[in-house]
Design a protein around this nucleic acid. Structure first.
Lengths: 203, 203
DNA sequence: CACTTGACAAACATTCATGTATGTATATGA
DNA sequence: TCATATACATACATGAATGTTTGTCAAGTG
């Protein structure tokens, strides 16, 4: 084959990321071959090795790209997160994203069920700062702390526990939704649960 | 080396399972070598292949053994699960098991973060009947349905959603605990959350 | 219009885990 | 006590994925 134009190259890079998401989410990261990824988009491993150093870098760049898309979309739907109602709105936006967007369903499914994380732990070191903070959803606790200072949450509430509860609940329910155990729409089950927990800590 | 006695053989089989749990939970299933497992207990791959057909069967037998231990221990602590309070007690027993028992922490960590399940999905086919039912915690929904028939739960409550909520909440919070995101003891965060959800559906 | 470099494809070498086959000394059972 | 199966260790063969190298041809560049 011959040389492609710059725009074509940019496109194949995107194609590789798209193919990687598909293959990784189907076969799992460890059993996915770079050949699988290349064939999925009608290319060879040469293309993959040209655009990415190795399988690990491909994973890192895939996560970065999807994470960036996700935060952008969420920020569009819920631009400011201060009150408890904002928090609920943000969680619901996440739920709707998983329900309506096939790509993000693949991504979430992949990240939850198709990677052996302790093995790939060094991948996190390569991710941009702030990623781990977002992944552990550490921002939620800060929002809750500020809300408590403003008097929206009762003073005796432990915001760390409350944060763990809300985040854990969402992650767990989303996971059951993604692996097919929960048959009801995610937002349908998540919304009342979130509201009940929030009501129980509200001043 | 020479032939061992029957009792010694039984012991090495147990050792292999123990070594597998350690290695799998540390390195992840796919990157764990049968050589790793054997060396961990001071043996060679020959021993592993003598006791188990292949890596997959080792995984299946490991899961079966741990699952059996788990259900036995839980049944000791909470012999009968009928009321909502029984349910809470069972969840708390699970939480305490994770907090106090290192082996079960390894097991839960391994099952949650160190296996690419869609890839190893056929493993489930080899597991004894009822396992999937236990894993998806489908028993919870039946308990809730009976409690609703007895009038303990308000009739307008959707027990499927309630079950998803309780189970998802526990799984999610346990997962955050296992990967070190949640710093508080698991039972401390789980108990109030469970009680609030249960209170909100009680008649 | 040279000619350099970019964007791959194709071939090659290497590693490495797996499965199997073979060896072996002893526990066991008749 | 003798034959045999047992409980492994060791050696071997295979395949598959990886990383690298080389080839190739057109897109850029001056």
């Amino acid at each position: 084959m011959a040389r492609r134009t710059k725009e074509q190259a940019r496109q194949t890079r995107q194609d590789i990321l798209r193919g990687a998401l598909s293959v990784f989410s189907e076969k799992g990261f460890s059993r996915s071959t770079l050949n699988d990824v290349a064939k999925r988009i009608g290319m060879t491993r040469g293309a993959v090795y040209w655009h990415f150093k190795d399988k690990q870098e491909l994973l890192v760049k895939l996560i970065e790209a999807m994470h960036e898309k996700e935060t952008k979309l969420l920020a569009e739907k819920v631009p400011v997160v201060d009150s408890l109602d904002d928090l609920i709105a943000q969680f619901l936006a996440r739920a709707e994203l998983l329900e309506t967007n096939k790509e993000f369903r693949k991504y979430a499914y992949f990240m939850n069920m198709q990677v052996e994380w302790a093995t790939e732990k060094h991948v996190f070191d390569q991710l941009r700062d702030g990623y781990m903070h977002d992944v552990s959803l550490g921002g939620i606790e800060k929002v809750l702390a500020l809300a408590q200072q403003r008097g929206e949450i009762r003073p005796e509430i432990d915001v760390e526990v409350a944060s763990d509860t809300l985040v854990g609940m969402f992650i767990g329910m989303a996971q059951r939704y993604l692996c097919g155990f929960a048959l009801k729409p995610l937002s349908l089950s998540v919304e009342p649960a979130l509201k009940r927990i929030c009501d129980s800590i509200r001043a």
